[in-house]
Design a protein around this nucleic acid. Sequence first.
DNA 1: GCAGATAAGTCAACATGACTGTCCCAATTT
DNA 2: AAATTGGGACAGTCATGTTGACTTATCTGC
Lengths: 176, 176
Amino acid sequence: MTVPISATAAQAHVSPLKVTPASPLFLREDEIRRGIELLYFGYTSMIRGADAILEAQGLGRAHHRSLYFIARRPGLSVGELISLLGITKQSLGRVLNDLGHRELVEQRVGVADRRQRLLTLTASGAALEARLFTELERSMARAYGEAGQQAVTGFWAVLMGLVPPADRPQVEALQS
Amino acid sequence: MTVPISATAAQAHVSPLKVTPASPLFLREDEIRRGIELLYFGYTSMIRGADAILEAQGLGRAHHRSLYFIARRPGLSVGELISLLGITKQSLGRVLNDLGHRELVEQRVGVADRRQRLLTLTASGAALEARLFTELERSMARAYGEAGQQAVTGFWAVLMGLVPPADRPQVEALQS
DNA sequence: GCAGATAAGTCAACATGACTGTCCCAATTT
DNA sequence: AAATTGGGACAGTCATGTTGACTTATCTGC
């Protein structure tokens, strides 16, 4: 964590970042397009920060996503990770093989169901994930700080609204 | 446009989508991770809707991005599009060749600078882009409507905060 | 007017990360 | 005992990105 865990950090910016506010006619095409574009540029800006670290390790974004979710939910099964990432078993297989051979991820046999392989990070895997997380966090914490607490709540609400209702429980479940 | 241009549309949902609000300690790791995850799932949920249309045309997401920005800024140059997409000339070249051969995009010689190739959509290109936009819009309009006008302003503020300040003018410039 | 810079296009080779289809094994469920 | 499920593997393909080098046309500064 590069950000102190204190309320004063949240108050570092007394005046939130000014953006043109949404108008009462906020479903007009212009305002829809503004959301599409900001979502595209915001998303790509955030993840770009981790790319240099990944490239130095010979890894890609697919590896990062797996590391991230294994860090977030230690002991999740291969099937759960496939479901979160929305990719096929074959696609994930190669990524997990890479991460296993580099000793960044370990598998244990499931306790309740011995067919399952439960995924955890090794010490070096956790260290790498922490470095990658710090990059994302730097970007996100700056954005949160500039926009302010109330804006963050709105940010979450719109993003959750983009997720099809059927998929929302899975996203909510990531919150501990 | 599938959404009526009227103030009543914005009031269709009287009670905004409830999400756990950001806490005063909104720079804690948990709340940063929540933003990272919602951004990932929200972004992928939004663009997934257009994939079926693209696949039926034998096109991919790279083609969609080009069509989108050419629709947004008709007459932009190849170099401007490269800058917006953040890819190389070679990568874009293949996409523009595809779109040209299918007669979805046209090039005109620049007026001020005859080295430039200014890009516009053909009638069929505009029709396809409109269908793709409608898919994104359906998702975004639902999210806006569920979250409410004030949330949308916060959504924009955080996303703009994610964009490095040096890149912000380019994003702002897309707004007409 | 000429030299150098710039906008765009192209060729070749390559990496990543997704896909499909098929087959297999072990463990669980019915 | 049979069917289903979780996971792994092989083979092939496709989309989309990369670097490097080269060409052509055009613009700009001296």
